[in-house]
């Protein structure tokens, strides 16, 4: 299914398979993608989200080394990811979650802080709470590849 690629650690093979199925499923049930404002709304959400994260002392130090171009790339990948998680017709072109976060020492409190910031960005953009949870349920499964620091 369309969400499937995000429930796995972005294995390339899974990715290719799921993307080929994705367009059709997005047609059948793109309620979530619509609720998140399609590509335009999702870009706005990610802009707000990055702004909230930068101001969040619990996690902003993890992104301190990024230059403007780096922030741009990050936003682009986050838009692709959120678009995909909502069932939208997007292809995630970034590295897999495990590789991306290797060595960052992300712990549970930081992972959850990012989740709270994401909820805030969704609230700010008027996404209904119960639809927010449908997407957070997908993002939460990334925990094992992102928050590897005990």
């Amino acid at each position: 299914m369309c969400f499937g690629k995000f429930t796995k650690p972005f294995a390339v093979a899974t990715f290719a398979t799921s993307l080929s199925l994705c367009a059709g499923i997005a047609q059948a049930g793109d309620e979530l993608y619509k609720a998140f404002g399609r590509n335009e709304g999702i870009s706005k959400i990610i802009d707000d989200f990055v702004g909230i994260v930068v101001a969040d002392s619990r996690v902003n130090f993890q992104f301190a080394k990024l230059d403007a171009a780096g922030v741009g790339r990050l936003k682009g990948h986050l838009v692709e990811m959120l678009c995909g998680a909502t069932g939208g017709p997007c292809q995630y072109t970034g590295r897999d979650m495990k590789t991306t976060h290797a060595g960052m020492g992300v712990n549970d409190a930081q992972f959850n802080a990012i989740a709270e910031d994401m909820y805030r960005a969704w609230d700010k953009n008027g996404v209904p709470y119960h639809l927010q949870n449908k997407v957070m349920a997908i993002l939460a499964t990334m925990h094992k590849d992102i928050a590897t620091k005990k």
Binding site: N107, D108, A113
Partner: peptide
């Protein structure tokens, strides 16, 4: 054993 010492509650759960 983990060479770290947590003394501050993190209030990290949702």
């Amino acid at each position: 054993a983990h060479a770290q010492c947590i003394s501050v509650p993190d209030q990290g759960k949702l």
